[in-house]
Amino acid sequence: MRVISLCPSNTEIMEYLGLSHFLVGVDDYSDWPTSIASLPKLGPDLSINMDLVEELKPDLVLASLSVPGMEKNVEALVERGIPHIILNPQSMSDIEEDLIKTAKALNQWERGTAAANDFRDRLNAVRQHGLRITKRPSLYWEWWPKPIFTPGKINWLTEISEAAGAINIFHDVELASVQTDWEDVLSRKPDFICLAWVGVRKEKVQKNNVTKRPGYESLGYKDDSKILILEEELYCRPSPRLLDGLERLFRLIH
């Protein structure tokens, strides 16, 4: 099978299935696993070069609608008659279902079932630990600083927070992504600040990006250990790697 992935989360699903050797091309942002480094890059996920996609003669393209603007990729695939499926996971259960859906499309039913079971077991294992937490810390997740974007109720990071025995401070907002301001964050008095800026490597984020903000002192932190700089690739992509992020988060906050 010759498979093309048009976004990082799809590429990571292929690896979780143990099928990344089927990949013959990926988008520019796909960076895991390392075995894909030599594959043809087809452009950023919002500007895929469809001529290159067609030249690679894929048996299946894994398209996505996880970011606004990806619709044009799907439209181009339809226009050109290129075989594809569309993944658009918004929750942990969606990711589990996408493992099965992708494996089915590749005639790899057993791998899909095994991967979905493994995914569910790992998630439930952390959830069981989380249920034993009596004092659940509140978390402020920051996806972007200016303007501030943070996940709301309809987002996997609210699920991740709950599984880790914590609470997303914006879990009351019925949106996947919330645009707000620093004053709103301060008023909710989070126990931890989790910085995972989309598209920015962990090494480029500094705690003083937060400590210099007006009113930071009102949070009453003894030091900056309550500010967690996290790997955006483990928290901002709807892929099975969210489990790695979840397990890491649990250790950090408890």
Rank of each mutant, 00 (worst) to 15 (best):
T180R: 03
H84K: 03
D28Q: 13
P145W: 07
L60R: 05
W109L: 11
P58F: 05
R241C: 08
P33Y: 06
N88K: 15
E159W: 03
R213W: 05
P214R: 13
V126G: 07
I253T: 06
D224S: 14
L186T: 11
G25P: 07
V26P: 03
D31I: 12
D27S: 15
I154A: 08
A76D: 13
P145L: 08
G81C: 12
G81Q: 11
A103M: 00
K204W: 12
S138R: 15
F192P: 11
Q128C: 03
M14K: 05
D223K: 01
T211S: 15
E247I: 12
V126K: 07
F170P: 09
E162Y: 04
S47Y: 08
S5A: 15
G18L: 10
S47F: 12
K104R: 13
Q128E: 15
I133L: 08
W143V: 12
G43E: 07
E15D: 15
G69I: 08
I86L: 10
Q108V: 04
T102D: 05
D224Y: 00
I167A: 02
I133Y: 01
P151S: 06
S225M: 02
T134G: 03
L42N: 02
D59N: 14
L242H: 11
K57W: 00
D118H: 05
F170M: 12
V24P: 01
I253M: 06
S5P: 12
K72N: 14
K104A: 06
G245E: 02
D51K: 13
I133N: 05
K104Q: 09
L6A: 05
C236T: 13
L242N: 10
E97T: 07
L228S: 07
K204H: 14
S91N: 09
S161Y: 00
R237S: 06
I86R: 02
D59P: 07
E247L: 05
M14T: 10
S161F: 02
D27E: 15
L123V: 14
T180A: 04
W143C: 09
N124H: 10
I95P: 00
P147Y: 04
C194A: 12
E97W: 00
I82F: 10
K226A: 11
V74A: 10
I253F: 02
S38I: 00
L19F: 05
R80P: 12
G18P: 09
E247A: 07
R80M: 13
K212H: 09
P40N: 11
R127Q: 12
R248Q: 13
L249F: 07
A166N: 03
D181G: 04
L42M: 08
A116W: 03
I133G: 03
S225R: 14
T34K: 14
D31E: 13
C194W: 02
L52S: 15
E162V: 06
T113C: 00
P40T: 09
T102E: 06
I169M: 04
E75C: 01
K212Q: 13
R201E: 15
T158K: 03
F149S: 04
R111Y: 12
P214E: 13
T113I: 14
L106M: 11
L23P: 10
S64K: 03
I13K: 13
E54L: 05
R122L: 02
D31C: 09
P137W: 11
N208Q: 14
I148R: 07
R248K: 15
T102W: 01
Y221Q: 08
D191L: 00
P58E: 05
R80F: 01
A103V: 01
N107Q: 11
